[in-house]
Amino acid sequence: MIFPYGGRQESGACTHSHSDVAAMALRGLCVSYAGGIHAVCGVSFAVKTGERLALTGHNGCGKSTVLKAIAGLVPRTEGDLLVGGHSPSSCRHRIAYLAQRSSVDWSFPMTLMDLLLSGRYVHLGWLQRPGADDRKRVLEIAEKLRLSPFLQRQIGQLSGGQQQRALIGRALIQEADLLLLDEPFNALDPESRHEMLCLFDGLSAEGRTLITATHHLDDLETHFDRQVHMHMGRVDKDLNLRQPTPAAGP
């Protein structure tokens, strides 16, 4: 890569972490919006590699803000963040932020192939275009996610479940190992939601870490390892769903 995107460093500092280092560690996160209003404050938790963490809470409790702060979309007013033991600015390629589906312009004249290829951009940087190897990677992931028949479709012509799988596919093509998913089950029928949860199980088995903001509490214990419940911008409960007793505070 000749001209990397802002913030990414090619020093080799952001190598894959050891299993004993937290995939992501957040300590005392505060985010304030215009006017000094705290959206979240004092949020601390860490996730292990391969863990599936559900970030729950009512609308407006700060779930999406936490994800955006981890992804670097909103500035942290206070607090420390480490991704695999490193500064997040050098690890952008390892973090994939999957915004709510409504934040993508699905009417944009772009095929599924184009959308998936954009997952390679972080490795290409400015001025470089995707090559044969990038396309090969896209074809492999599309096959894995059963998206191959739709590659030449305009993205708005995909179903809700296919669109969500496409966003996950892009994260895999990016080779991200920390996936931040903001309400991925919104507007999905029960069948697509189940399919998505099974996909998450598979990703976790591959060693990818998932932090999912959701208000669907039905399948938490089956498909997630931890639940961090938020209330009024703070962590209210941190539950280990594999052992039904509250986990120790961070």
């Binding site: 990397p4 995107y5 802002g6 913030g7 990414r8 992804a71 670097g72 979309l73 952008r92 390629h93 973090i95 994939a96 932020y97 999957l98 915004a99 934040s103 993508v104 312009d105 944009f108 772009m110 184009d114 959308l115 954009s118 951009y121 972080v122 400015w126 275009r129 892009r170 990016q174």
Partner: peptide, 19 residues
């Protein structure tokens, strides 16, 4: 490629370091 991505999915573009 960046102009197209930033128009279609600005959040993702920003998350990978594009302004």
């Amino acid at each position: 490629k960046e102009l197209a991505l930033a128009a279609a999915d600005p959040s993702y573009a920003q998350s990978i370091g594009i302004n």
